[in-house]
C-alpha cells in the first residue's frame, strides 16, 4: 500500500478529505449565492438569464462544475464510510447518556443533517440543473439574441408554496450543518490557534446564519412577487 492510499485510509486522512471537500462546498455556496441573488433584481430576470448563459459557456466554470459534483460525491461517500466506522467503534451504546451537556446537537448529528441536505440537493438538481441542461426550456430574446429563460422556470417553481417551504426548511438544516462544519473543518486541518480560532468560530457562526438565510430569502421574495 503506497503512503498516499495508506494516509487516505487512516481516520485522519478520511477526515482531511471531509474537511477539504466541505470547505470547497462552502466556497461554492458563496459563488452560487452571489449568482442567485440576481434573481431578485427588478429587471424581469434579464441579468440572471445573461449570467446563467455566461456560466454555461465558460469552460472554466464547466471544469469547476464537474469538480463540484465530484467533491459532493466524495463528501457523501466519506461521510457514509466515517459514520459507519464510527458507529462500529461503539458496538454497545450507553443505557443513559447526557451528551447534550458536553457537545452541540449539530456536531452529534452531522450525518442526519447531511442526509437532509443530500435529499434537498437531489430535488434541487432535478428541478433546475437537469431541466436547464436537458429539459424543454422557454426562450427569451434580449437585443435580438435568444437565451434560455432560466428565470421563468425558477419563478414558476417558486410560485408553489410547498416548494418554497421545502427550500426554506432545507436551508435551515444547511445552517445547522455549517454551524458545526465551518469551524470543524479548520480544526481538522490542524488550524487551531489562539490568534485565529476565535475569529474562525465567529465567522463560521455568522456564515451559518447569513448564507442559508439569503438563500432562503430568494424563494420567499419570489413567492410573494408571484401572488
Amino acid at each position: 500500500m503506497s503512503w498516499v492510499s495508506k494516509t487516505l485510509k487512516s481516520t485522519l486522512g478520511q477526515k482531511l478529505l471531509m474537511a477539504l471537500t466541505g470547505l470547497f462546498l462552502i466556497l461554492f455556496l458563496v459563488v452560487h449565492l452571489i449568482g442567485n441573488l440576481q434573481l431578485l433584481l427588478p429587471d424581469n430576470g434579464e441579468s440572471f438569464n445573461l449570467y446563467a448563459e455566461s456560466m454555461a459557456q465558460n469552460p472554466l466554470i464547466r471544469v469547476v462544475s464537474i469538480g463540484n459534483f465530484a467533491f459532493i460525491l466524495l463528501h457523501v461517500v466519506y461521510s457514509i464510510m466515517l459514520s459507519r466506522y464510527n458507529k462500529s467503534s461503539r458496538p454497545i451504546d450507553y443505557a443513559m447518556s447526557k451528551a447534550s451537556t458536553n457537545s452541540s446537537w449539530s456536531s452529534r448529528n452531522m450525518g442526519i443533517l447531511g442526509t437532509i441536505i443530500l435529499i434537498f440537493l437531489l430535488v434541487h438538481l432535478k428541478g433546475f440543473y437537469y431541466e436547464i441542461k436537458f429539459g424543454e426550456m422557454p426562450m427569451v430574446d434580449y437585443e435580438g439574441v435568444t437565451y434560455k429563460n432560466v428565470f421563468a422556470i425558477v419563478a414558476a417553481a417558486y410560485s408553489n408554496v410547498l416548494y418554497v417551504a421545502f427550500y426554506v426548511v432545507a436551508m435551515g438544516f444547511l445552517g445547522f450543518h455549517l454551524s458545526h462544519g465551518f469551524a470543524s473543518a479548520f480544526q481538522t486541518l490542524g488550524l487551531n490557534h489562539v490568534k485565529y480560532s476565535p475569529l474562525i468560530q465567529k465567522v463560521g457562526f455568522g456564515f451559518a446564519i447569513v448564507v442559508p438565510a439569503l438563500f432562503a430569502l430568494i424563494p420567499i421574495v419570489m413567492y410573494i412577487q408571484s401572488l
Binding site: S10, T11, L12, Q14, K15, L16, L82, Y85, N86, S88, S89, R90, A99, T101, N102, S103, S104, S107, R108, M110, H180, A183, S184, Q187, T188, L189, G190, L191, N192
Partner: peptide, 30 residues
C-alpha cells in the same frame, strides 16, 4: 473511531486536556 470535533472529550476530561492538541496532532500527522 474518527474525530467529529464535537468537543465532548475536552468537556469531560478530568484533566482539562484541550482539543487544540487534536489540531496539533493533525498538523503533526499530515
Amino acid at each position: 473511531g474518527a474525530c467529529t470535533n464535537t468537543g465532548a472529550c475536552e468537556a469531560e476530561c478530568p484533566k482539562g486536556i484541550s482539543i487544540t492538541n487534536i489540531a496539533r496532532m493533525n498538523r503533526e500527522y499530515f
